[in-house]
Simulated assay, not measured.
Amino acid sequence: MSVFATATGVGSWPGTSAREAAEVVVGELHRLPHLVELPARGVGADMIGRAGAILVDIALDTVPRGYRIATGRRSVTRRAASLLDEDIDALEEAWEKAGLRGTGSVVKVQAPGPVTLAAHLELPGGHRAITDAGAVRDLTTSLAEGVEAHRAQLARRLEAAVVVQFDEPSLPAALAGRLTGVTSLNPVHPVDEAMVIGLLDECTATVDAAVAVHICAAALPWKVLQSSTIEAVSVDQQQLGSADLDGIGEFVESGRTVLLGAVPGTTGAARTSVEQIAAAVAAVTDRLGFARTVLQDRIGVTPACGLAAATPEWARTAIELAQRTADALAEDPDAI
């Protein structure tokens, strides 16, 4: 069974308290807790900002549109590193309290994927880094090395296995040429599929652990994902169209895992039950003609994207529902 065939969180979390978040995540997710991101803390705490603490020999600074590649060690990079250290300290404390050190438990960490990182970072001249092939290569190498160092550090501190999730929300837009340039005179051309596969594979080869890619967008690039060496794909179930079912089927048939964001990310559906979520997850694999055992071995459950905008109460409920659903699927999938 894949390490990803269970319940976990996507990554982002509401609020600003790393300690409170870590206690909830470790307490509720008993097979694959994650190191959360708390974007409400501001610069350096969001998905792209955290990369400032991870990239090797590349610094970030802020600009009106977001982040820019900079020279020297800037205050933004120092802040990102400080916040990440705070998050790791909090997780280690919660891990110790729960008695999980040395038990063989697994933890997940997240980082922006190479395409999304290059799409969101500006070059010194103001253009997106993704418009410069050399910059993309340098960013990818720096990212892969930094994520592996981050993963290894956390594994040492927790005495646990650590797996990695690369977040690629901008990948579909980059492949389709939907990214905007600085002006209409500077279009961002579609990225090449073969190049994307190479970037993902470089990250996978550098990281000494199982790797998943998370995409919370429609029009999933299944050809690219299927051709890469990643072990798992994490998607929002509500974003899936009919074409995605074939992609899921082929991905699972190749012996890999799909995590479905089946738990609502907001309190608007607070009455959602484990039975309803499990039935919705099972409906996907049933439509594809898989035996119910695939729910135990190749399907994971997560909340949908957007949990950072939820209330802390719903965030706790969402991951609790995800875990209880995964437990129900593992215990008796035929009873769903």
Rank of each mutant, 00 (worst) to 15 (best):
E20D: 15
C216P: 06
L35A: 03
L288G: 04
R298V: 10
A160E: 05
E122R: 11
G134A: 08
I197V: 15
V258F: 00
T206D: 05
D332T: 09
L225W: 02
A243S: 14
W314M: 04
D46E: 08
L83D: 08
Q237K: 11
D236V: 02
G125K: 08
D46A: 05
P39M: 07
I197Q: 10
E148Y: 04
A205T: 13
P172W: 04
Q296S: 10
S170P: 05
A278G: 01
E331H: 11
R271E: 13
L329K: 10
L60G: 09
A269S: 13
P172V: 01
G181K: 06
D192K: 08
A94H: 00
L55M: 05
K223S: 15
V284H: 02
V164E: 00
L83K: 08
I48K: 05
V76N: 05
V294Q: 02
I248P: 07
G261D: 08
V263P: 02
G27R: 10
P124N: 09
I88P: 00
A174D: 03
G146H: 02
T302C: 04
T6V: 10
A210M: 13
M47Y: 03
A280Y: 02
G126I: 03
G300K: 02
A243W: 11
A308R: 11
A160D: 02
K108A: 07
H214R: 11
A310L: 04
H34N: 12
V252P: 00
V213C: 05
S228L: 01
A210S: 14
S12R: 13
R128F: 03
E320C: 14
R73T: 14
A243Y: 10
S12M: 15
G241I: 10
P33T: 02
A328V: 09
L60Y: 09
A326C: 09
E320D: 15
A21F: 07
G44R: 01
A111T: 06
G66H: 05
Q239R: 14
S234M: 15
L225R: 05
G126S: 00
H214L: 01
T267L: 11
E20F: 08
P112F: 01
T131E: 04
A160N: 04
A119D: 03
P264N: 04
A135S: 12
H120R: 13
G102V: 07
D61G: 15
T267S: 13
L38S: 00
E92S: 12
L123H: 05
R156S: 12
G268V: 10
